[in-house]
């Protein structure tokens, strides 16, 4: 430090009291600055009214066998599928070694409701909505960058890294679910 005048305690290049004050003041200013900036940054996180729209209910009897209905939850599409027996068979008989993101079909549906598949409708690659009923594996095909999903919504081919996400949901009754 080029402070030759005040060197009461520091001799021969040792840290002085003034060095300490400089560093302490600097650190306090940085800390205070961070505390001021944090509320500004945090204000960009989801607001209370956005978070309040966290759950919805849906009547499953509206979906017929072989059909898919798309509902909107938290601004995102949710696929509700009533799968045919052949499609369930196809999904359960797939060997784990063929999967990029291995997960059994049974872990992606609710016990006793194997025919219903509930998925977030955004491709896990970059968020486009995969087209139902196309692609090489009988499930979905994402038109944006060519990801193929099977009848369980699992990624089989293309750039997407993971399976279509199963949102948190529960059966309130035999025909009614609550998502979120």
């Amino acid at each position: 430090m080029a402070e030759p005048v005040v060197t009461e305690n520091g001799e021969g290049g040792d840290a002085t009291r003034r060095d300490f004050i400089h560093i302490a003041a600097g650190a306090a200013a940085v800390g205070a600055g961070a505390m001021l900036v944090w509320p500004l940054i945090n204000s960009m996180n989801p607001a209370a009214d956005t978070l309040a729209l966290a759950s919805i209910e849906f009547d499953m009897s509206k979906v017929q066998e072989g059909q898919q209905i798309v509902i909107k939850w938290q601004g995102k599409p949710v696929f509700v599928r009533y799968r045919t027996a052949a499609e369930i068979q196809q999904a359960t008989s797939t060997s784990m070694s063929m999967l990029k993101d291995p997960q059994a079909d049974g872990d992606r549906v609710k016990e006793g409701h194997q025919q219903y598949l509930v998925l977030l409708g955004n491709c896990t690659h970059l968020g486009c909505i995969p087209t139902f009923g196309s692609g090489d594996y009988g499930g979905w095909f994402c038109p944006c960058h060519g990801s193929h999903y099977d009848t369980s919504g699992r990624i089989r081919k293309g750039p997407a890294p993971t399976n279509l996400v199963v949102p948190e949901y529960a059966f309130l009754s035999d025909t009614r679910i609550k998502i979120g």
Binding site: I41, M44, N45, P46, A47, T50, Q74, G75, K76
Partner: peptide, 16 residues
């Protein structure tokens, strides 16, 4: 989520 201001692209996103 912070960047979008919600779980999906919505009003908060457009505004910012």
């Amino acid at each position: 989520i912070w960047l979008r201001g919600g779980p999906a692209i919505d009003n908060a996103t457009l505004n910012r």
